[in-house]
């Protein structure tokens, strides 16, 4: 386990870690705590918070594996010279996936615990319960596309589109959650597992493909 995290750590820079592991969750918490305190419906801060999280998370991924899935990526030559190339990439992608899941779900759970002190907001927690998994699925899908691109402006474009898609899905999902709570959670859970497996396996396929010109 420690090797897996070490590999992820080596692939991420200090600035990335600070932004994604410290600034992003802290901003999210501060925004939501303020809404709780000011009695602003939690759905507002959750919606804004999660949308920004997806946007920044996809964009920031450029600094770890930007352009990694590109066909004939000559920048992989050094990694290709090691027998551990596949293992290292698997570790990095897997840890990044777990990190993303824990971040999205963990922040919701922290707010849920704090929410006990704000009974008037409890109703919103049920309505927003699909946010973490929906954001995770959107973010993972965005990353899957963005890693084919070189140039952070293109990655930002993908991040923006993913955020937009997420925003469009919010209202119908809220409606569905109200009527079919467990079905929505179940479907999102299946999608979460599926997109996580797809991202890891696709990354390993790209590692294998990188050794072949055709």
């Amino acid at each position: 386990m420690s090797r897996t995290i070490k590999n992820y750590w080596a692939f991420t820079r200090w600035g990335y870690r600070f932004a994604v592991l410290v600034v992003l969750p802290l901003s999210f918490l501060i925004l939501n705590l303020f809404c709780l305190y000011a009695k602003i419906p939690l759905v507002v801060s959750m919606l804004i918070g999660y949308m920004y999280m997806v946007l920044i998370d996809i964009w920031a991924d450029y600094w770890i594996l930007g352009g990694f899935y590109r066909k004939s990526n000559s920048a992989l030559e050094y990694l290709q010279t090691s027998n551990r190339f596949g293992r290292i990439i698997r570790d990095v992608v897997l840890t990044d996936t777990i990190r993303r899941f824990l971040l999205y779900v963990g922040l919701y759970l922290i707010l849920l615990v704090i929410g006990n002190y704000y009974p008037e907001q409890i109703g919103w927690y049920k309505d927003c319960s699909f946010f973490p998994l929906l954001c995770f699925v959107t973010s993972q899908s965005g990353v899957l596309i963005a890693r084919h691109l070189l140039g952070c402006q293109y990655v930002y474009l993908v991040a923006s589109i993913a955020t937009l898609v997420e925003g469009i899905l919010i209202a119908p999902m809220m409606y569905l959650t109200e009527h079919y709570f467990w079905a929505v959670q179940g479907i999102l859970l299946v999608l979460t597992a599926a997109i996580s497996i797809i991202v890891v396996l696709y990354s390993l396929k790209k590692v294998r493909d990188s050794y072949y010109d055709k």
Binding site: K6, R13, I64, G66, S82, R84, F85, I88
Partner: peptide, 18 residues
């Protein structure tokens, strides 16, 4: 040869992993 976003520190650390 290296991923363009890598820093010298990353080259060093990733080489140690590889």
């Amino acid at each position: 040869y290296y991923l363009p976003q890598w820093t010298m520190k990353q080259v060093e650390e990733i080489s140690g992993m590889m």
